[in-house]
Amino acid sequence: MKTILNSVKNIEQIFGVLAKKIQRPDLIFITVEKKQVLSVLSHLRDIEEYTHLVMITAIDYLEQGKFQILYLLHNYKNNTDLGVKTFISREDAHMYSAHHLWGQVATYQRELHEMFGIDFPGSPRVNENFALEGWEGIPPMRRDFDTLRYSQETYNFRKGRATNDPKKYMKKNLHKE
């Protein structure tokens, strides 16, 4: 039986791996170059028996101007998870579409397009709304979208809400000045 370490080694040799993190014996994250992602995914799916796509998700590293995209794959033969990560520029956020590899990829890509503003050219229905029909403004999962400000601008707080900070309140009242 192939082990996860073998699979990672194969990826390292064939495609090159930028970074590797063994989180648990059954969970490893590898980082590959953006242009290699689709080949790595196909290789993992077809050769290394990582046949199950668990999910695709992104993280906004605003301070570094990058998005991290993570493809998490599972191998049912040896029951291990392998996360394939890549970083793309935040300025020109687009990624190669992997919709041809698994049936659910198009949905994930549609969601990432809506929530992060990452484009996946060629992905079916990628421009359709997913959960946010009628949304205006920046994609809400980006770090620069401030949920508190949004809710303060959009909704009303209940009347009569006001709070006091104990430290300041005591300073005001105890007159040690």
């Binding site: 309140y169 005591m170 105890l174």
Partner: peptide, 26 residues
């Protein structure tokens, strides 16, 4: 939760004189 002054509770050393008020809408 808001902290609000309450009648009869004085601000003194070790007691801010405030008490929690809860908004059950949230």
């Amino acid at each position: 939760i808001d902290l609000v002054p309450v009648d009869g509770i004085e601000t003194k050393d070790g007691d801010s004189g405030l008490r929690p008020r809860i908004d059950y809408g949230r």
